[in-house]
Structure formats: structure tokens, C-alpha cells
Design a protein around this nucleic acid. Sequence first.
RNA 1: GGUGGAGUGGCCGAGAGGCGAGGCAGCGGCCUGCAAAGCCGUAUACGUGGGUUCGAAUCCCAUCUCCACCUCCA
Length: 473
Amino acid sequence: MTLRLFDTATRSERDFVPLETGKVGIYLCGPTVQSSPHVGHLRSAVAFDVLQRWLERSGHDVTMVRNVTDIDDKTLVKAADAGVEWWAWALRYEREFQAAYAAVGVRAPAAEPRATGHIPEIIALVQALVDNGHAYELDGSVYFDVHSFPAYGALTRQALEDLTPAPDAPADAKRDPRDFALWKAHKAGEPETAGWDSPWGRGRPGWHIECSAMARRYLGREFDIHGGGLDLRFPHHENEQAQSRAAGDPFARMWMHSAWVTQSGAKMSKSLGNGLLVTEVLAHYPAPALRLALAQVHYRSMLEYSEQTMDDAAATWARLAGFVVRASDKVGAVTPEQVGAAPLPEPFVIAMNDDLGVPRALAHVHETVRAGNAAFTAGDDATLASALLSVRSMLDVLGLDPGAPEWAGAGAGSSAAMAALDSMVRADIDARAEARAAKDWATADAIRDRLAAAGIVVEDGADGVRWSLSVDD
RNA sequence: GGUGGAGUGGCCGAGAGGCGAGGCAGCGGCCUGCAAAGCCGUAUACGUGGGUUCGAAUCCCAUCUCCACCUCCA
């Protein structure tokens, strides 16, 4: 059974065949670190984290490279406005992005290269393009000559003559308004630290060139998958591909793009100011609920985000996590080794192999949970144990295994604080048990209400009383 | 203007010629001292107008609406 992935370049699903059997190189366009991350930013990271997990689960050794664009026009402007060094500004937001990624269980990439750390590679690439006639220097800047590369526009099917010239482009200076900067000459007023010496004088890299240079450095001249948000297709990825191929690199064999997050149908974005900060969401909801909200919609479909989105996701997470906790108490916990080695249900595998059909895969998870709960009620421990292992294994692929270490504390109750709380709550629960035994319902309910007011939910099961923290909203 | 995408039940979202994915919410039931959780059952659907077909949400034609990229954007 082979994995099929939708390739943006051909606009069709294709069998995924790695360049080298058993190994996969992925280059993912990461953040421009000039402001705080919002939930839209997390979408592509989560989508490609799921891809990586699925590839690894399918036996591949994955090298994930996700860059950090730590210098660009906006960063310089914003830092200057704030009276902060641009490099300090960039690092501050780089840390925020890293924290946000980690919070929702996106695993750290194998490499996280920064543009400013690869100036020699960038200069070498630009020089090669100048030397072979695909780029030209003008007043200390270097531009890619789009007319020199007939395949320009191939990735996004753009015809050169149909492109609207950039309104802010110095059309009179460049040979063609659609030529884009590979190297930007240092401008008066910009900090000295925002420039590097080059064959064309002092300057800094253009936006697109860093990805070409860094992909080559870490993944080679040809690699398997290039990913990013849908909005990066043009011009960013088109330009990347053009300059890399013009320099002789075969470059990415497949392009994958994740769709955006919308609110009332409109794209969430920094420039629109409708971005929901990750920190705000995480202040009110468990992190895995946010990951679930982002992952449960197919990565190529728009994800409509509303106030209800997180409430729904939190409820679903509580159902999944609750099943795992109850089932583990009943039939024993599953080890991480078992989770990683368990055979996955056929419907799940089929769904995931079809361009990462997470929604259908999750549907099977829900069906398995329901079967597990039914087995729990029926006292069928063998079926319950099997469902538990199956559910955890499937959720593990999605980075949503409630028993995974990264979600410890998100309702699992394994931390020292939870243990301390447990001993306190137990006293109340015992008192309530006495009241219930005496059929003193008023006292029993008063205790339950008091715990509920403190955010603790008490449930009477056939096998005893359990408590859990209620989900914020 | 060019390129690409979307319109599915109260909501979110799969599917893609023929047993109405899944979740949330709703309703009825089981369980419970009452709840909660869980389980069982259940209603409401494929933007509009034509066409093809024994049969269309799925194919064809037309049409309306919305969104994105072409300037920075995950």
C-alpha cells in the first residue's frame, strides 16, 4: 500500500516515491519572526508534523528542515519603531514561535536554519546565477532575470504577461518589473548590522534566496518534499524553484501546501489584524485541543475558526483522553513501545495513505473509542484492551495520544501537583461516599457542587468514583 | 485582468454515480438517589436552473455567491 500525496506542481495526487529508499527530506517554510504567532501559523506546522509522523510510522527516516526568516523589511521597520535591535527583535519572536510549536506537540525539526546564518551560501548561489546569466547587478542589488528562465511560472501556472507588476517595484530600474531581488543593497538609514559584504557591495539577502540556499545545504540539490502555506506558492515558491533550477539544482520533487485558517470565511492574517494569538487560546484551552482543532480538518481545506471551534475541540479531546484514562485504569496502561509497534487498523491506514486523510482517520478513531466504551460497559476487557492500544496508536500518529509524555498534565494527572491535589480531593470524595451511603443526598450533592465550583468534576462510575479537572472555556 | 479554490443537515466537517463518514448540539431511551460519563435509537443535506443515467451531492452545460494569490503573509 503506497502513500499518495497531492503535488501542487501537478495539481494531482501522486504516489510518493522517495529519492532514496527509506529516507525523506522535507523543507518547510517556517516563520518570518517579526510578530507573535497566531493559530493560523500553527496550521502548516501541525500539518507537516503529521506528515512527518506518518512517514516515520511507515518506516521512513525523515529529515525535516524548517527555516527561520530572521531578517526582512518588516523586521527592520518594526524593530526600529520599537527602538530595539532588529536581531534582538527577531530572536524574541523566534522564541515565541518555538514555544508555540512545542506547545501543540510539533516536534523540533532536524535543522532550523536562519537566513542570517547562511550568508556565504546565499552569496555563492547569487554569484552562480549572475555568472550563468540568470541574474544581473544594479546599483549594488542583484535581481533574477525572469525572462532568462523560460520555465518561470511553471509551479503556479502563471504566464509572465498576465502578472500584475508589484506596485511598489522600481519598475524603471529593473529590466522587468517582475524581476525579483536576490540581494538587496544596503540602504541609508538601515542598521550597519543589517548588512554583509558581498561582491556587489554591502547588502542583505532577498526573501526567496535563503530557502534555495539552505535547502541545498541541508537536503542537497534535489530533495523530496517542499512544503509551506498556500499563500507562499506565489511568488515565494515560484521564485525559489526558478532560481534553484536556474542554478542547476533539480530542487523539490514534490510541493505540498496547507490551506489557511479563516474567520467568517476570511483568511486569518497578520496584516488583517484578525489573528488569534496562540498564547490567548492556550490560556483558555488545553494545548492538545488546539492541535486537534488544527489537525482534524484536511490540510488542504480551509479551516473555519469560530468561537465554537475550540469548545468543540476541547470536548472531543476530553472524550478521547477520558477513554484512555478510564480504559487504562481498567485493563492496564499501554507502554510507548506498544503504542509505536501496534498494527494500525486498515481503515486508518487507507485514509492516511490517501493524501493524509486525517478526517476519515479520526472517524475511525471515534468508532474505535465507541466500541471500546461499549466493551467497558459490557465488561469485555479483552476487547477494551485492544481498543485502547488501537486508539492510542492511531492518535500517536496524529500527535494526539493522550498517554504521550507531551500531554502529561493535560488532564492525565501525573504531575506532583496533580498527586497533591488528588489527596485533597480524595478526602472530599470519601466524605461524600459516607453521605451517599447514609442516603444523605443533600450533603453529597453539596460536596460535589463545591468541587465543581473549584473546577473539579466528580463522576460516579460502576467501578468507583473518579475526578478530573473540568475543561476551561 | 490572470491563476487557483470553495458552496453538504442547527454548527464543524468527510465523501465523490446506487447501503445518508465522523464529531458537537437536539430529541427519545438505558444506566444513575439525582447528575456526569458512557451506551442504544432518531430527525434535518448536498448554492440555483437545465441535461446525461434505471439511478447524481457525486458526471455534463449554464448560472449565482464567496474566498485566496498575483505586494508582506502559514
